[in-house]
Computed example of a mutant assay.
Amino acid sequence: MGYQKATAYETLLEFTFEVGKLVTMQDISSENAKKRGAFKERFETGNSVRSIEESFSLKIDIE
């Protein structure tokens, strides 16, 4: 079915690695919540088939 988009999750952590070592970790849940709300609104008011196809795309899209 494809990859689940980041907007599907309430908790979202962003990790940055350099030379295989973790350098930073950020909780980006609050900014993701805004995107999740926009996606939900578009999903509920748009073309259902297209929205489902976008939801389960085989592309890894973090936006």
Rank of each mutant, 00 (worst) to 15 (best):
M1A: 13
G2K: 06
G2A: 06
G2E: 01
Y3I: 13
Y3S: 09
Q4S: 12
Q4L: 15
K5T: 05
A6D: 05
A6C: 04
T7F: 09
T7Q: 07
A8V: 07
Y9Q: 05
E10W: 04
E10K: 15
T11L: 09
T11C: 02
T11H: 13
T11G: 06
T11S: 11
T11D: 10
L13K: 10
L13A: 03
F15P: 06
F15A: 04
T16E: 10
T16H: 10
T16N: 10
F17P: 03
E18Y: 05
E18T: 06
E18V: 09
V19C: 00
V19T: 08
G20F: 02
G20N: 03
K21H: 00
K21D: 00
V23Y: 02
V23I: 10
V23R: 10
T24K: 11
T24M: 04
M25Q: 11
Q26C: 02
Q26T: 05
Q26N: 11
I28A: 06
S29P: 02
S29H: 05
S29T: 05
S30C: 01
S30W: 03
S30F: 07
E31K: 13
E31Q: 14
E31S: 13
E31F: 03
E31R: 14
N32V: 08
A33I: 00
A33N: 01
K34H: 00
K34N: 03
K34T: 08
K35C: 00
K35Q: 04
K35P: 00
K35I: 00
R36T: 04
R36V: 00
R36D: 01
G37Q: 11
G37P: 02
G37L: 05
G37A: 09
A38H: 07
A38V: 08
A38Y: 08
F39D: 00
F39C: 02
K40H: 09
K40F: 08
E41Q: 13
E41N: 13
E41C: 08
E41S: 14
E41K: 13
R42I: 09
R42A: 15
F43D: 07
F43R: 07
E44V: 04
E44R: 12
E44I: 06
T45P: 03
T45W: 07
G46I: 06
G46V: 01
N47A: 14
N47L: 12
S48I: 07
S48P: 12
V49M: 12
V49A: 15
R50N: 12
R50L: 15
R50K: 15
S51E: 12
S51Y: 06
I52E: 13
E53Q: 14
E53T: 08
E53K: 14
E54H: 08
E54C: 06
E54N: 11
S55Y: 09
S55N: 11
S55F: 09
S55D: 11
S55M: 12
F56W: 12
S57F: 02
S57R: 06
L58A: 12
L58D: 13
L58S: 14
L58Q: 13
K59M: 10
K59E: 11
K59F: 09
I60W: 07
D61G: 05
D61W: 03
I62C: 05
I62A: 06
E63T: 10
E63D: 14
E63N: 15
E63Y: 11
